[in-house]
Design a binder for these strands. Structure first.
Length: 259
DNA sequence: ATGGCTGCTTTGAGCAGA
């Protein structure tokens, strides 16, 4: 059994103790982190290695930053990619590697800020470039997982108050269409293989007691190719770390595979 | 109610997140 996780930690500097505790408690095999907010020279490689993980990271100061952890010493990360082909970008949002039989693509999709902003147009252009790249990757990697903070709630059932969110960034039609276009390449949203209802969120605003009131969005996703999805046995969102003092505003999303 | 909260930044008010 292989346990795979995605978690937007919103500063690995602040969250490292919680991440280490969570790794020790849950022993995941592959972890994709987003918003590490650390330049590579500050990445806590020694601490994570001491916790039993091999690490790969692509970071920058202040914003963004992604990392992959693979359980075991000296795990080999093959065919590493840190960019979307044809989409040069100073923002560190992409980290892909081959780990054993698996292709793992860790993404921190742009937020988009608001639907009338340049950042929104950047988000849609980024998603278009991502689709082109994943289409190529699919030809080479039948067992692929694309996971991370997508900053898109796929459907209204992934939104605590769809009427309040209607038309805004994270739920707008163009964003959802871009996500559907990714899925239509041949991916499955693994969480939805096990749970079809409303009320399952992976992010809650820090403000206005949103977590306590369970006002959230499901925006952290794990997409698997058909061959990999067929081996998925369970998926859940672990709300426990969100309860902690100084919690990330995102919860880890977990899935287990027969690999 | 463009507030609310958190993390970051050539340290402190402003940006960004979602």
């Amino acid at each position: 059994m292989t346990r795979i996780v995605t978690w937007n930690v919103n500063s690995l500097r602040v969250r490292l103790p919680q991440v280490l505790d969570w790794l020790a408690a849950h022993q995941p095999d592959i972890v994709a982190l987003q918003e590490t907010k650390l330049p590579d020279e500050s990445f806590p490689a020694a601490e994570l290695t001491a916790a039993g993980y091999s690490v790969l990271f692509s970071g920058q100061r202040t914003y963004n930053g992604v990392a992959l952890l693979a359980r075991g010493a000296d795990v080999s990360f093959g065919e590493v990619a840190r960019e979307l082909p044809g989409f040069p970008d100073v923002q560190r949002r992409v980290l892909a590697a081959t780990v054993g039989p698996l292709r793992v693509v860790d993404l921190y999709v742009p937020n988009g800020q608001s639907v009338d902003s340049d950042k929104y147009r950047y988000k849609l252009a980024w998603l278009a470039a991502l689709r082109e790249w994943l289409q190529e990757e699919l030809g080479r990697h039948p067992l692929m997982v694309v996971l991370g903070d997508f900053n898109i709630a796929p459907e209204d059932r992934d939104v605590h108050d769809p009427a309040a969110w209607a038309g805004s960034v994270h739920v707008s039609d163009p964003e959802r269409a871009a996500l559907r276009a990714l899925l239509e390449l041949g991916f499955s949203d693994v969480f939805r293989r096990f749970e079809s209802g409303t009320g399952f969120y992976s992010w809650w605003d820090y403000r206005q007691g949103a977590f306590r009131r369970d006002h959230g969005l499901r925006i952290d996703l794990m997409l698997a190719t058909a061959a990999l999805a067929a081996r998925c046995r369970a998926s859940h969102i672990d709300r426990e770390p969100r309860r902690a003092e100084r919690a990330s505003d995102h919860a880890p999303v977990v899935a287990e595979f027969d690999i």
